[in-house]
Design a protein around this nucleic acid. Structure first.
Lengths: 201, 201
DNA sequence: CTCCCCCTATGATCGCGATCATAGGGGGGA
DNA sequence: TCCCCCCTATGATCGCGATCATAGGGGGAG
C-alpha cells in the first residue's frame, strides 16, 4: 500500500470533505494543547511534530514529507506537541469527525491498522538507532533500515539527516568523510552504499 | 489500558488458545524468512528483533521486556528479522489465525487500534528523549513524560532505567547525585520529584 | 546463617562528539 | 544579473559521558 493510495482511499471514504491547505515556512498546523479537530495528510513540503526541551533544544518527533501527521492523536483530548511547516507545505485536511466516520468502514479500518503498524516499526527502528553511541553506528543502522541491501538514496539534505540521526551536521560530515576515506562507505551526492567487508569466516 | 489488561483481554478473546512458552538466552522465537504463525506477548525476560547485515553489523529493531513483539508483522508474508531471547524469557504465544479471528470482533479491534496509537506515541516520546544530549535533560524529560506533575515512582531498578535512558548506570548515578546536591531533584529510594525552580518571570 | 551475585555508588582517565570558527559553492529571489 | 542565504565541508578546542576501577550493601539461594 503506497502512501498516495492511502490518501486516495481516505479521500473517497470521507466523501470529498477534505480540503487542501498551504502553510508557509515556520507556520503552525496546530499547537500543543489544541484540541484535535482535523486530520492532516502532508502532500508536499515538510511538516514536523516538534517540542522544545527545557534546555531550549527543538526535538523532532515526526518528520513527514508525504503521509499522515500525528496519527496517534486521533482520539486524544489535546495535542502534546506543535506541528510546524519546515518549508512551504501543502496538506490535505479533513475534519476529524468525518475521518472517524470513515474509520467505521471495515476496509478503511483495515488499511488504517496496517498503516499504524508500519509506522510503529519505523519509529522503533529510529529509537534503537538513537540508542547507539557512535555516529558511525547510527549512520550504518540508518542505511540498513531505511535503504535496501546496503544502498540508500537520501531524500533530504545531509543537514536535516544529521538532525534525524541525533548528530550535529559537523559530526555527520566528519564521520561520513572518515568512513569514505577508510573505504567503508561509497558516497556520491545523495547516493550512499556500504562497501561489503571482505572478512567472513 | 495497562499492558497486562491488554493481554488479559486478548487471552479471553482467543478462548484460551494461547500458551506460555519459555526461551533460553540466545534462543530464537522466530527466524527471518519464516512465515508468521504466532503472535508473541513477552511476559518476562527480554526479546529483541534483530537483523544481521552482510556488512557485519547487527541491527536491533525492537527490544521488549513486556508487551507484544513484532505487531507490525501481523499481516506480513514473512518476517524480515530474527526474534531472539536476550536472556531467559517467557512469552504468551497464540496462533496467528486465532489472533486474527479475535481482531474481527469490533471491541477487540477497537482496543488493538488504540494500543497501536498509544505505542506509537510512547515510542515517539522515547525517541525524543534519546535525542536530548545531556543526561540531566533525559532524566527530567523522563520524569515529565512518564510521571505526573514532576513526580515519579520508578518501576524498575536504576540500572535498567539507565539503559532505557540510553546512559551507562554510572552516568545516571552521577548525574542524579549532582541534581540532588544542587537542589534540582528530590530522591528517596524509587521516588523522584523535580523541585520547582523559583525563577519564573 | 552464610555466601555470592547484583544493584548502588563514586573516583580517575580518555575519547568522541559538541561547539566555535572559517570558507567555498550553489540556488533562488530581487 | 547579482547578491544573499543556506548547505557543504573541515580545523581546533572543550566538556560530557563512556570506560575502567573500587567498594559497600541487600537479598535470595543453599
Amino acid at each position: 500500500m503506497e502512501c498516495l493510495d492511502l490518501l486516495a482511499l481516505f479521500d473517497a471514504a470521507v466523501g470529498g470533505a477534505g480540503v487542501e491547505k498551504s502553510y508557509k515556512r515556520g507556520e503552525a498546523l496546530f499547537r500543543r494543547g489544541d484540541r484535535p479537530q482535523s486530520m492532516f495528510f502532508i502532500l508536499a513540503g515538510e511538516a514536523r511534530l516538534v517540542r522544545g526541551s527545557p534546555t531550549g533544544m527543538e526535538v523532532v518527533f515526526q518528520r513527514t514529507a508525504q503521509g499522515f501527521l500525528a496519527e496517534a492523536s486521533l482520539d486524544q483530548a489535546a495535542y502534546h506537541c506543535d506541528a510546524m511547516a519546515a518549508i512551504g507545505t501543502r496538506a490535505w485536511v479533513v475534519p476529524l469527525t468525518k475521518f472517524r466516520a470513515a474509520l467505521a468502514l471495515p476496509e478503511v479500518r483495515e488499511v488504517w491498522l496496517r498503516h499504524l503498524s508500519n509506522e510503529l516499526r519505523r519509529v522503533r527502528a529510529h529509537a534503537e538507532r538513537l540508542a547507539l553511541r557512535a555516529a558511525r553506528d547510527r549512520i550504518l543502522h540508518f542505511i540498513e533500515t531505511e535503504g535496501r541491501g546496503g544502498r540508500l538514496v537520501l531524500s533530504q539534505s545531509k543537514k536535516s539527516w544529521a538532525a534525524e540521526l541525533g548528530l550535529t551536521h559537523e559530526a555527520l560530515y566528519r564521520t561520513l568523510g572518515v568512513m569514505v576515506r577508510s573505504g567503508l562507505l561509497e558516497m556520491s551526492g545523495t547516493c550512499l552504499r556500504i562497501r561489503p567487508s571482505p572478512e567472513r569466516p
